[in-house]
Write a protein that binds this DNA or RNA. Structure first.
Lengths: 190, 190
DNA sequence: GGATGTGAAGTCGTTCACAGCT
DNA sequence: AGCTGTGAACGACTTCACATCC
């Protein structure tokens, strides 16, 4: 809406876009503060900034991809990051030379692939806060341990393996098979 | 538990494994039928079968991958499908010859990559019920239209694009950036 | 006048507690 | 005796409705 040049928006407009109740929109926003103006609505620019602040998207998050197979390569060339506040600033593998060429072809400004042993050093240098684990499942936990040791507090795990991290670290799994199960369920009952 | 040879399980055991309340487990299961035996618990084998039936996992789901870039290739060699009831039986791209070699290397029994124009014909032949869309976002909607026209009722969309399908079709998006946003939020507030 | 922010009412989901069955 | 299935009690979230402020 900001890009379309719209200045204000009401909870009713937001609600219809999100297919929820207008009161829900107001309650949810009011939970974090007073962002609206009575009798007017919400100023789009202000609301956008406020929400970004709430969600932690008012800064650039610096990330590393670990495990440069097909999935890791896909992430390295994932253009959608550019629109968001995420940036891949490092890539690691256990066998770096093999893959440099492959990735360089794909990107204008390629990210050099480094040996996993350098993660602690590089994490500090480049202020890495999030690690994307795209290794085979058998390596996921030991890689996670290295990530933790390197002081990277956020982990997004793409490997189909259950891994654990100590208190104070945040781990999220991307198991698309869960979504696939949901799809299968919906197909079975329709 | 079945693989460990356990014969029966109580709602209390299931609850502690899932970190929920025992009554929750019983209510949820009872919603779909009577699977337990009073004074005993649930027979593991029977319960497993019942749950598979409920979730639509008591059959093999035949799938096609459309768009054989990095992500599509990753899915083609995704070993975890084997454990589940999903099978990739076809792969499509707009430029098939280019990629055959790359995928063949990776798999013992490669799936041949076909031109997208053959989707309708092949969908019928091979009883394809689910399409995994891994094209660039700009192509996602037009590919989805072809999928719908081919009579494939389930779509799992990996492309970062909003697409729509007619009534009667089921669409699920795999937008891992949502999970990444959630991770960033949790990191910001801890 | 008109849309927000919010107590009150209403609805939905979770937990308790026990009857009923093995 | 023990555990399920389930009505009743409870708690949480959603929606309503209006006082409040621009």
């Amino acid at each position: 809406m900001d890009q379309s040049g719209e200045k204000v928006v009401s909870s009713a407009q937001l609600a219809s876009k999100c297919m929820v109740n207008p009161a829900q929109v107001r309650k949810d926003l009011a939970y974090f503060g007073e962002f609206g103006v009575r009798g007017v609505g919400y100023y789009v620019k202000d609301l956008l900034n406020s929400i970004k602040k709430i969600l932690g998207l008012n800064k650039e998050w610096r990330m590393a991809v670990i495990g440069i197979g097909n999935l890791g390569s896909a992430l390295l060339s994932y253009k959608d990051f550019l629109k968001q506040n995420y940036k891949i600033v490092a890539a690691f593998d256990i066998d770096p030379p093999k893959v440099i060429g492959r990735v360089s072809e794909k990107l204008g400004k390629p990210v050099e692939i480094l040996h996993i042993s350098r993660i602690k050093e590089v994490a500090k240098e480049r202020n890495i806060e999030i690690a994307l684990i795209t290794t085979p499942p058998s390596e996921a936990q030991s890689v996670a341990n290295l990530v933790v040791e390197a002081g990277i507090r956020g982990i997004l795990n793409f490997a189909p393996a259950q891994i654990t991290v100590p208190e104070g670290f945040v781990l999220k799994d991307v198991f698309f098979t869960n979504i696939l199960d949901n799809l299968a369920y919906l197909l079975s009952n329709s």
